[in-house]
Design a protein around this nucleic acid. Structure first.
Lengths: 186, 186
DNA sequence: TCTCTGCTGTACCGATCGGTATATCAATCT
DNA sequence: AGATTGATATACCGATCGGTACAGCAGAGA
């Protein structure tokens, strides 16, 4: 059999594995087990090993957020883009059933491996949201505070809903944040 | 030499080790290296191994929050207790330089090992804060929302300040949250 | 002084870690 | 057909994993 895998097909499986087990917890045997791909192929596509695999996941995540969240926030109608952000974020994180890998990596030593990528992800998110808020009528300092508060709140909601095993906490928190930002743009 | 260690002396060192490396990343060799205690003593005090060590840390953390945060929120003057909470939390987390181990454990598979302890920590925090908010004059539903938002925001601020390597983000976020709650109690 | 108890360091256990080498396979090109 | 290429499974590597066994050692009580 010659089943050819594409990086694009494998990376999302990596992502879920790292999400569930963390960087250290995601051993190569776990990864081969979940992807169904042997070490041979794994190292063929990712000669850099585990670190390259996780790096590919982060790049994949970054690309998704760039096109689905950041770009609309920067370029499209501000109010609409912000509203779409809440919906897309709720879907992406499966209403709290899925964590933010970037945030999780930031919390422990794994941060040192992907330092700049992790910082970028959040900087660009906050900056894009701030831009949208200002276009929607916020003053600069308020927009900055609210943007930080929004991104912050999302990360916190992920932690909390995981801890409580209650996805409604996540969706409810997003709603509260959305109202808060909406109130500030009129 | 007969240097007798107390569990109370060791546990905080465990805590920092788990914080920095995560549960999987905190190997026994790392732990012995940081504590300066050999495996012999380690397993003498903690026959249950790594899991018991981490469990002791969680119990330690829980006890600290109970006496320093939750109890005042439940019993003392509401406004004062809330104000004290922000100060104590900022100190405890070293202005964002130290993460919340409970939150970190919640994010990956480690949650399954300490499930009830993790959930309890957050449930009691939110409940205590809600109680204080109500005594300070909040309506019940608003108090619940604000309490969740507060705890949520703290967790998010920890993630964000770690990711950005910027402790000012943490302190600033706490300030914003404090203002938010203050505004709702008058 | 002589036990006895509690603590400690160390050697060791099987299992698994991340990673490498290689032989084989399927498909394509000449 | 024969050679070449890319993809795959597998065996294997030294290192380290979490955990155990145990011998020795210091101090308290007899």
């Amino acid at each position: 059999m010659k089943t050819v895998y594409e990086r694009a097909d494998i990376v999302p499986v990596f992502a879920e594995t790292f999400r569930e087990l963390g960087y250290e917890g995601a051993t190569l045997s776990r990864i081969t087990e979940r992807t169904g791909i042997g070490k041979g192929s794994l190292y063929h596509f990712f000669p850099g090993g585990k670190e390259e695999m996780a790096g590919a996941v982060l790049a994949d995540i970054d690309a998704w957020f760039e096109q689905a969240i950041y770009r609309p926030l920067r370029n499209d109608d501000a109010r609409q883009a912000i509203a779409a952000m809440w919906v897309n974020v709720n879907d992406y994180f499966r209403a709290g059933g899925r964590i933010c890998l970037v945030g999780a990596f930031a919390l422990d030593d794994t941060r040192e491996r992907f330092s700049s990528g992790i910082a970028d992800y959040f900087i660009r998110w906050i900056e894009a949201l701030r831009s949208a808020l200002m276009r929607a009528g916020c003053a600069e300092t308020e927009a900055q505070t609210l943007a930080e508060e929004g991104v912050c709140g999302i990360q916190g909601a992920l932690v909390l809903s995981r801890a409580l095993r209650d996805g409604t906490v996540f969706t409810r928190s997003l709603k509260t944040l959305a109202n808060r930002l909406e109130a500030a743009t009129r």
